[in-house]
Amino acid sequence: MEIVISSYCRIKNNALIVNGKSIQLAKQDSAAFFLAETYKILGLNYPKFHKMDGLCKLGLLATEAALQNSGFLERHTLDKIGILMANKASSLETDRVHQQSISDKEKYLPSPSVFVYTLPNIVIGEIAIKHKITGENAFFVEPSFNTNLMLQQNNLMLKQSEVSAVISGWVDFDNGHMDALIYLTEIADDSIKKLNFKPLNEELLKQLYQ
């Protein structure tokens, strides 16, 4: 089975790179500012975005950037698309906010709209909801970006479940620091082979993450 990458988006050091094209933003910007700017640059109109925590905003924007003009969603039925993600900090960035809200007995005010984001796989849910994607899900937590694991799990999902394509990637948000690589992978059947996408392999993945 041949698997190809049809599109990708990298977000690192407040820079947005889509399929090799980079849109650099000022380095001193806060994560919140960068995410708001990226939302505008991508021309999104999705009010739900503003309710999300940083991790979900990051994952959603990177996915949107990779999906735009990719033809990915048109090539696959929505129940045959899986979403596979991993990171290092799980949902700790939002966990700390929730913990803060319950640290003081006098100011004890946990917020449901914060608590709901204290699970890393909510980012998968947000992407699934935006596009009505209903295939397989999996969220892994790793010591660092691990090309071996990403490839292995991507292969397993495509080979051993019903999906024909996977939105895959690394989405980490920790202490205001963002690190994301989202890439779209597809089983190269005859029609997709004609599109001349690059085969998914460890070397390519390492190169994209650099």
């Binding site: 009010p47 005010l109 917020s111 449901p112 709209s113 709901v116």
Partner: peptide, 17 residues
């Protein structure tokens, strides 16, 4: 406003806060 079930709970937090 397109509010959902989480927003409803959040309004309760608003009144308390």
């Amino acid at each position: 406003l397109g509010l959902d079930s989480i927003d409803a709970l959040e309004l309760i937090v608003l009144l308390e806060k």
